[in-house]
């Protein structure tokens, strides 16, 4: 039996290495993108085998789903001809060597540091702090209470990405499907309720089991991408709705900052949430963050500022 399990894991690892190699070095662009999407799927299976269900959920939603959609859309925008970039120029070679050796050294240093980490890690202190955090699932407690600062900065980074895309893109290319696809609006109407139901379920589940804002936001954003494909989101492009769109994009970050400052006023510590209200506060922050993440992913997909 254990031989079977080891064989299963070896199959997974071999498939993962092959997919990674193909995604990086396949000469054909579309083939590389599809290999990357399959890599995300197998990677999620690997996280499941490593007992990291939260990361498996996030990988399935963001790595395999949304990133694949973004890459396919980018592929559609690339010029048809051109293909691969030419080989390195002579002046670039020392820089490439320098970058490669730095990456190698950094990897070795990180591996050494990881080897020196104290065992058995932080599991026991986190389990002790769990009753104070307002949720019963350790990963959600870490992401939104114990290490909320990291999550706050992650959302800020995503919002900065949207700003960059909006400031770079000269114009939003009218991006209707290349051919009329009568099945697409019907499919969207049929499927989109599920893309609202599942994020709500993931948000609710996040307080006591794997789930939470990031997978929920990614699934909601994927549903939004489906709506964008079917052209079912005219409100996003109306000039009078732009303040609402911007408010929703920033809602996660704003509510997070409000909670952080409220903690400063109530307890004297930045981002400290009083235990009595932590459960409700975390659910509110997660809901706002999921909405913002979904809209940010849709903004990346649109690749340009709507309403212009």
């Amino acid at each position: 039996m254990s031989g079977l399990v080891i064989g299963f894991d070896l199959l997974l690892v071999a498939g993962l290495a092959w997919l990674a190699w193909q995604a990086l070095f396949d000469r054909h662009r579309f083939s590389a993108v599809v290999h990357f999407m399959a890599f995300g799927l197998v990677m999620a299976l690997v996280w499941v085998r490593l007992d990291a269900l939260d990361i498996a959920l996030a990988e399935a939603a963001i790595g395999a789903g949304v990133t694949g959609a973004l890459l396919l859309a980018a592929l559609g925008r690339l010029p048809a001809t051109g293909g691969h970039s030419p080989a390195w120029r002579a002046a670039q070679r020392p820089l490439v060597l320098l970058a490669l050796s730095t990456a190698l050294l950094a990897t070795l240093a990180l591996a050494w540091v990881a080897w020196q980490l104290p065992r058995p890690g932080l599991a026991v202190p986190i389990a002790e702090a769990l009753p104070e955090s307002g949720v019963t699932h350790a990963v959600t407690a870490i992401l939104l209470n114990l290490r909320a600062w990291d999550t706050l900065l992650e959302i800020a980074v995503m919002l900065t990405g949207v700003f960059l895309v909006w400031s770079l893109g000269a114009a939003l290319v009218p991006y209707a499907p290349a051919t009329a696809l009568p099945g697409l609006p019907a499919l969207t109407r049929l499927l989109h309720p599920l893309f609202l139901l599942v994020p709500a379920y993931l948000l609710w589940r996040g307080s006591h089991a794997p789930g939470g804002a990031f997978p929920a936001g990614a699934v909601l954003g994927a549903g939004g991408v489906l709506l964008v494909l079917a052209g079912a989101l005219p409100w996003m492009h109306e000039p009078r709705r732009q303040p609402l769109l911007r408010l929703l994009l920033a809602a996660g970050l704003l509510l997070f900052l409000a909670v952080a400052l409220g903690g400063l006023l109530l307890t004297g510590t930045f981002l400290a949430i009083p235990a009595s209200m932590a459960g409700n506060v975390i659910l509110a922050v997660e809901t706002a963050a999921a909405l913002s993440i979904a809209l940010m992913l849709m903004a990346f997909y649109l690749y340009g500022e709507p309403g212009r």
Partner: peptide
């Protein structure tokens, strides 16, 4: 989630 996102892909 796999099943939902396969449709989007």
């Amino acid at each position: 989630i796999f099943a939902l996102l396969a449709a989007v892909a």
